[in-house]
């Protein structure tokens, strides 16, 4: 049974591997170039905020990281549907590769949020509704990664994780709503908030470039991660086949020795 499914898996992923090898250098170069431009814009071109001064530049990393933390979860949910409904052989590979990347972006978002909070609020962490929601998202990523690690057989792990991911998707609005409720219940609205729509164009452009750079970076990392996962599974299939071949080999060796 593992033999059959592994052979079936190899057909489509082989084409993906070829594609990945050709795409990756371009994606990596594009991500590097966009990041360079974006960082230049955010650190040297964008003006300091009249209220927050230079610290506002953290936003150019913080906001794209938050966006990608969410985007990778959406990506995982789509892959989870692919695994459960269409049983596409690449879907669970995409799902597995997306988890650590999403967790990493979410973590960057939390760290930059914390760094931003220190000068703004005077403490490293405030249980603000937005930050807290991101923290819960991070915890969900950790749970998903733990489940991947706990099950050895990739096929079984993929279906389990797909169910968990989709349960998570259903819960995200509920969590978001509850956290907002919890936050307003406890907190006076005196806390600083960015005024989203009134952001000045001189800041909007660097932000958009950085968002694009982070997205391309995430795609490049995701393709690389998928390639690694496919190779990892091939090693696994090779090990299984090697173990099956051992018996035949051992008997002839024993015969020769006698």
């Amino acid at each position: 049974m593992p033999r059959l499914s592994s052979l079936w898996n190899l057909a489509n992923p082989t084409r993906f591997l070829g594609l990945a090898d050709r795409l990756l250098p371009w994606l990596a170069a594009l991500a590097a170039a966009l990041l360079a431009v974006g960082l230049y814009l955010s650190f040297f071109v964008a003006p300091p905020d009249y209220q927050q001064g230079e610290t506002v530049r953290i936003m150019f990393i913080h906001v794209p990281a938050a966006w990608l933390g969410l985007f990778m979860y959406v990506m995982m949910s789509a892959s989870a549907l692919g695994t459960l409904v269409w049983r596409h052989p690449l879907a669970d590979v995409a799902q597995k590769a997306a988890a650590p990347i999403g967790a990493a972006f979410t973590f960057v978002c939390l760290v930059t949020g914390s760094l931003w909070g220190k000068p703004m609020w005077g403490t490293w962490w405030v249980w603000d509704a937005r930050l807290t929601s991101v923290l819960v998202l991070f915890l969900m990523y950790l749970g998903i990664m733990a489940l991947w690690r706990a099950v050895d057989d990739p096929g079984r792990a993929a279906r389990a994780v797909a169910v968990l991911t989709l349960v998570g998707v259903v819960n995200i609005p509920i969590i978001k709503f509850s956290v907002d409720w919890w936050s307003t219940l406890h907190q006076p609205a005196a806390v600083f908030r960015i005024d989203g729509p009134t952001i000045h164009p001189s800041m909007l452009w660097p932000l958009l470039v950085m968002a694009l750079a982070f997205t391309v970076l995430a795609v490049a990392l995701h393709v690389a991660g998928m390639r690694n996962e496919i190779l990892r599974r091939r090693v696994r299939s090779l090990w299984l086949m090697e173990a099956e071949r051992l018996d035949a080999g051992a008997e002839t060796a024993a015969g020769a020795a006698r």
């Binding site: 050895d152 090990w239 299984l240 090697e242 173990a243 099956e244 051992l246 018996d247």
Partner: peptide, 10 residues
């Protein structure tokens, strides 16, 4: 080979 990949006899 990890022992988990081996058959019962192995």
């Amino acid at each position: 080979l990890p022992a988990g990949y081996l058959s019962a006899g192995q």
